[in-house]
């Protein structure tokens, strides 16, 4: 028995050491790879995306849920490397592995091309909500929030509150209360009128917008 365990132990150690010495990724940025990763066909990528990826990452590469990373507008070469790494198991994720293991490199490049050209989830001035905050929507008679609440949401004479730093959930609740009239202490309905025209999504976007504003 002893005689057997020793070679096994040595073999095991050898195996382990070769595993440890494996490269962290098989993708090497040679000029060819670099060119290949950027030569995908977005139209074909879209077809695969609709069938396989949208389920988790959302139709535009921006998922509604918090469990999936946004991949829209991501760097094309980065996307390609991640997909190859998921496929080879260099980046370990069972869900992702299952989705890419039967795709060839061309298809991975196509997917990369598709997601890279989609608009990323906007931040800052492009964030959803920003338009309502700074300009409102004249077609729906929504005066911009800034008009009343002040240019940096810090409130204004005499009864228009500061909006920064409210917990997002509470903010949504406040807006819903104005919208359904259960809060109606705003004289002349100035706030109710602004809230009434807003959709759930817009209120959500505004909540995130204001929750993200730094409090000075």
């Amino acid at each position: 028995m002893r005689k057997l365990t020793i070679p096994f132990a040595v073999g095991g150690a050898l195996l382990f050491s070769t595993a440890a010495a494996e490269p962290s990724s098989e993708v090497a940025w040679t000029p060819d790879t670099y060119r290949f990763a950027q030569s995908g066909d977005a139209a074909n990528g879209k077809k695969i995306a609709v069938e396989v990826c949208d389920e988790c990452h959302g139709a535009g590469g921006v998922s509604e849920e918090d469990d999936f990373p946004n991949i829209a507008g991501q760097l094309e070469t980065y996307l390609y490397k991640q997909l190859v790494d998921f496929k080879s198991g260099k980046r370990k994720n069972r869900k992702m592995r299952r989705r890419v293991k039967d795709l060839n490199e061309q298809e991975l490049a196509d997917l990369s091309a598709w997601y890279a050209q989609l608009p990323a989830e906007p931040q800052g001035p492009e964030a959803p909500g920003h338009e309502l905050v700074t300009r409102g929507d004249p077609k729906r008679m929504i005066t911009s929030c800034n008009a009343c609440h002040g240019a940096d949401a810090k409130g204004a004479d005499l009864d228009v509150p500061m909006l920064k730093g409210q917990p997002a959930d509470l903010f949504v609740e406040m807006m819903e209360n104005f919208r359904d009239g259960s809060r109606a202490n705003d004289v002349y309905g100035r706030m109710r009128q602004a809230a009434e025209a807003l959709s759930d999504e817009e209120i959500e976007a505004l909540a995130r917008y204001y929750a993200g504003l730094p409090v000075q």
Partner: peptide, 12 residues
């Protein structure tokens, strides 16, 4: 009508 910052109320 009432003029209040920022609208004439009712607004329509």
């Amino acid at each position: 009508l009432v003029g209040a910052r920022y609208g004439f109320y009712p607004r329509r």
